[in-house]
């Protein structure tokens, strides 16, 4: 949605894997790779992407990116720990996006109440 608002051409591949390019987002590939290293807790990968991202975008971006990723380790646990369903009215409009990023098979799939 924010890509549409900003009239820029984005794609959803970078959400599926850091090997799929930057998705039209500045430093998208590195940000995706950083998210992966933080999730896997692979110190070697984390140190490598940290250096790469700081060189490319600066320390501020590295710190803020780690902050956003950490934030979504919280939000996912809130959603899945409480059985949060999709919001009413978002199921159909998000169908193509969900297909593109490959999340329809997830155990955590919960439909919004009719």
């Amino acid at each position: 949605m924010s890509g549409v608002s900003q009239n820029v051409d984005i794609s959803f591949e970078a959400i599926s894997s850091s090997t799929n390019g930057n998705g039209g987002v500045p430093h998208g590939e590195l940000l995706s790779k950083l998210s992966e290293a933080l999730w896997s807790k692979n110190l070697k990968e984390l140190n490598a992407v940290r250096e790469e991202l700081i060189n490319a975008a600066g320390e501020d971006v590295f710190v803020d990116a780690v902050g956003v990723s950490a934030m979504f380790h919280m939000m996912t646990r809130i959603a899945d720990g409480t059985g949060t369903p999709l919001d009413a009215g978002t199921d159909e409009p998000s169908a193509d996006i969900r297909e593109a990023i490959g999340v329809n098979h997830l155990v955590s799939r919960r439909q919004s109440a009719p």
């Binding site: 959400i15 430093h27 995706s32 971006v61 956003v68 939000m75 996912t76 490959g102």
Partner: peptide, 23 residues
Amino acid sequence: NSLTRLQIELIAARTSKLNECFY
């Protein structure tokens, strides 16, 4: 802060996918 909204949402979505969160 130092990130564009597109960058923020990419990190958010990638992290959510890694955690296998459908929401």
